[in-house]
């Protein structure tokens, strides 16, 4: 086990799905050459944002080892996920990487008491040998999310509010003392007046429990509020990544610019700019099959080269941007310095 270095290292992960019948059909690249890493000794919140169909959830399935990548590999604490074969090794991995799902009312069976899930998790991961011994473990996990065992004991999911049950679902993930939590749209089903308590909770986990969080969302406003770094995904590619302040305050990629502009500001005075007309794609699949930049069809700055080949990753300030707009500048400066 590596003490320093990378907690999670995603190297050129590509996932392809075959759509259609046995004969023919098309190849859909859901995740395309994605690389990023999380440091072991510096917990952080990394947001993966993008519209539906951008590959966010497919990528999270790869990170949970629910799906084998077609190409590339994922290293967790220096270990290749595809090398995990034995059940015991997989259990060790699951203890350290835990998911939190979108809809807490679907996470828990309505016919089962929620505390049963917490005790099961504690016993299954060997945090306690039996139910009685697990009381402390479960209570500790619940305290981390601002609840206590007395509040949830013997309760069914419908007896808890959306905010409470989502906190229980985070507590369940915390029982095995994970190092990484993968939260896929954890607040989109929670009521507006309770949403911020979940979001604040992730920040607290990072600061007090040293847990890294991969926060998957399409809500840029909460992403800006909690995360340290952000990756913007479009049709399988990470088109822009970097510190969240840089990416969302000064977006470089035309898609990020459009995305940021489209977030409705909660203030009536911004109405005019938001009402500026935008073009929308008609059908779903067309952008996936396109050669070159997937945004070319909607991009206001589109050039001939964008439709011919995949744009390269270019460093612009603190951000990494996948766009030809910046690569020309990069080439010029590279020629100037004799690179």
């Amino acid at each position: 086990m590596s003490v320093s270095g990378k907690l999670l290292d995603v190297q050129h992960v590509t996932v392809e799905f075959h759509i259609g019948g046995l004969m023919g059909g098309t190849l859909l690249t859901a995740v395309n050459d994605v690389s990023f890493s999380l440091d072991n000794d510096k917990p952080e919140i990394l947001t993966l944002a993008g519209e539906s169909g951008s590959g966010k959830t497919t990528l999270s399935r790869v990170l949970l080892r629910d799906l084998e990548p077609t190409r590339g590999k994922v290293l967790f604490e220096g270990r290749d996920l595809s090398a995990i074969r034995k059940r015991s090794e997989f259990n060790e991995f699951m203890k350290k990487v835990q998911p939190v799902f979108q809809n807490p009312f679907e996470t828990f069976s309505p016919l089962r008491r929620v505390d049963a899930y917490l005790f099961d998790t504690a016993v299954n991961f060997g945090m306690a040998s039996n139910r009685r011994g697990a009381v402390k473990v479960v209570d500790d996990a619940l305290h981390n999310v601002g609840l206590s065992l007395d509040e949830v004991r013997q309760r069914y999911p419908h007896e808890l509010s959306g905010g409470q049950i989502q906190r229980v679902s985070v507590a369940r993930a915390l029982i095995s003392k994970p190092k990484l939590i993968l939260a896929d749209e954890p607040v989109s089903m929670v009521d507006a007046s309770l949403r911020m308590e979940i979001v604040n909770l992730f920040q607290k986990l990072r600061d007090e429990q040293n847990v890294s969080v991969i926060y998957i969302t399409h809500d840029l406003a909460t992403a800006y509020y909690i995360s340290d770094r952000i990756g913007i995904m479009l049709r399988g590619y990470v088109v822009e990544s970097g510190p969240v302040e840089d990416v969302l305050e000064r977006p470089a990629h035309p898609y990020t610019q459009l995305l940021k502009e489209s977030v409705p500001e909660p203030a009536p005075k911004e109405r005019e700019s938001w009402a500026k007309h935008i073009a929308l794609g008609t059908t779903e699949v067309k952008e996936y099959g396109r050669i070159g930049c997937k945004f070319a069809g909607r991009c206001p700055h589109v050039m001939d080269i964008c439709r011919k080949a995949d744009p390269p990753d270019v460093q612009v300030g603190q951000q990494t941007v996948k766009c030809y707009l910046y690569s020309e500048d990069a080439e010029k400066s590279a020629a100037g310095t004799g690179h």
Partner: peptide
Amino acid sequence: PYTQHLIRSLPMIGERSTKVSLEGAP
């Protein structure tokens, strides 16, 4: 007070003050 809370708790890009949830549930 409910409206005030709803509006104050909205996160915005470019502004990072701490936002809180209301106590209790609907």
